[in-house]
Amino acid sequence: MEIVIIVAVAFLLDLIFGDPYWLPHPIRLIGLLISGCETILGRIFPESKRGALIAGIFLNLIVVATSFAVPFFLLKGLALINPWLRYVVETLFCYQIFAGKSLKQESMRVYKYIKAGDLQNSRKYLSWIVGRDTESLDFKQITKAVVETVAENASDGVIAPMIFMLLGGAPFGFLYKGVNTLDSMVGYKNEKYLYFGKFSAIIDDILNFIPARITGMAMVIGAFLVGLDGKNAWRVFLRDRHNHASPNSANPESACAGALNIQLAGDAFYFGKLYKKKTIGDDNRAVSAEDIVKATNLMYVASLLSLIIFEGIRLILVVYL
C-alpha cells in the first residue's frame, strides 16, 4: 500500500519540480560508475571481440547489481531507524527516477529556438537529448528528432520506471535505470561498443519489451483524450511498431506519429556514419514546431493514464491477495 502512495507522490513531485540542477542526482552517479568500470575493465580484458563481450557482461552485472543493492540496503537501514524516514527517502528516490518534467524542459528549449529561427542553438540543444549527429540537420529534421525523443522517452523515462517502481519500489526503479543508462552510454553498434555494449543493449531490450508496448497503447488512448487522431494512432501503431532496429522504440513512436498525422524516423547519421532506417507514420502534412508541444502533452496524458491503471491494479492485488 505504501508504494502506491510513494510512486503517486513522486510522480506529482516530478510533474511540479522536475530535476533541479542543484539537487545531486543518483543517475549521474550511475553514469560515473559506468565510466569508471569501463576504464578498469578495458585494462583487465584483452582487446578482442571476445574480451570486449566478456568485459561488457561484467560491466552490466556490476552496474545493475550496485544500482539495486545500494538503495535496497540503504532503505532497509533507514527502516530500522524510523519507518517514516525510509518512506521520505524512498519517495525522494522515486521522484528522481521519473524524468517527465526534465524531458519536457529539454524539448521545449529546442522548441523555443526553432520558433526563434535559431538553427545553431536548435542543433546544440537537440544534441543534449539525442544520440544522432545534429550538425547538419535542418528545422524539419530537428523537430522530428525531438518528437521521436519525447515519444521514446515516454516509455524509458516515465512509464517503464513507473512499472518497475510499482513492482519493487525504488530499488527496482534504480535497477531499471541502471540497465537503461548502460544502454544509453555503451549500447551502440559502432566500432567501439559493438561487442562491449552488446549484452547491455540486449538486457535493455528485454526489460523494455512490455513497457514499450504499454506506452504505445497508452498513447493511442491518450490521443483520443487530447483531441489528436486516435484512430490513426492505432492504425499506424499496428502497422509500423516494428519499423526500427530496436524491438521497442517504434512502439511509442508509431503511436505518436499516427496521433500527429506526421512521418517520423528515416535515415540518420550516428558518429559520422549514415544508418538506413525505415520511416514511421505517413507524410500527411508538414511537421511543425507545435508538434513538439502536442507530443509532450500526449506523453503526459499517457503517463498519467498508465499511473492510474497500474496503481489501480496494485491496489486490487493488495486488497484481494
Rank of each mutant, 00 (worst) to 15 (best):
E2C: 03
V4I: 15
I5F: 14
A8Y: 12
V9M: 15
D14R: 08
P26I: 14
I27C: 02
R28W: 06
I30T: 07
I30Y: 00
L32I: 13
S35M: 04
G36P: 00
G42F: 11
P46W: 14
I57M: 13
L61Q: 01
L61T: 03
S67E: 03
S67K: 04
A69Q: 00
P71A: 12
F72C: 01
F73T: 02
L75D: 10
L75H: 01
L78T: 05
A79C: 08
I81F: 14
W84E: 09
V88E: 09
V89S: 12
L92E: 00
L92S: 07
Y95L: 11
Y95K: 13
Q96S: 06
G100E: 08
S102P: 01
L103V: 07
Q105C: 06
E106R: 15
S107E: 00
Y113P: 09
I114S: 11
L119M: 10
L119Y: 10
Q120W: 05
S122W: 07
R123V: 01
K124C: 00
G131R: 15
F139Y: 13
Q141V: 07
I142W: 00
T143V: 05
K144I: 06
K144C: 05
A145R: 15
V146K: 03
A154H: 03
I159T: 13
M162A: 08
M165R: 09
L166M: 13
G168P: 00
G169H: 04
G169Q: 03
A170M: 05
F172R: 05
L175C: 02
K177Q: 01
G178N: 03
V179F: 02
L182Y: 09
D183K: 10
S184R: 01
V186N: 02
G187N: 09
Y193H: 14
Y193P: 01
L194H: 11
F196H: 06
F196G: 00
G197T: 09
F199L: 10
F209N: 09
F209P: 06
I210M: 05
T215Q: 04
M219I: 06
V220T: 11
G227M: 04
G230M: 03
G230C: 08
G230I: 03
G230S: 11
K231C: 06
A233H: 10
D240H: 11
R241K: 15
N243I: 02
H244A: 11
A245R: 14
N248G: 10
S254V: 02
C256I: 04
C256P: 12
A257I: 04
A259R: 12
I262L: 06
I262K: 04
L264T: 07
G266C: 10
A268G: 04
A268V: 12
K273C: 02
K278N: 03
D282K: 03
N284H: 10
N284L: 15
E290H: 05
E290S: 10
I292C: 07
K294G: 11
A295I: 01
Y300A: 11
V301T: 07
S303M: 02
S306I: 13
E311A: 13
G312E: 03
L315T: 10
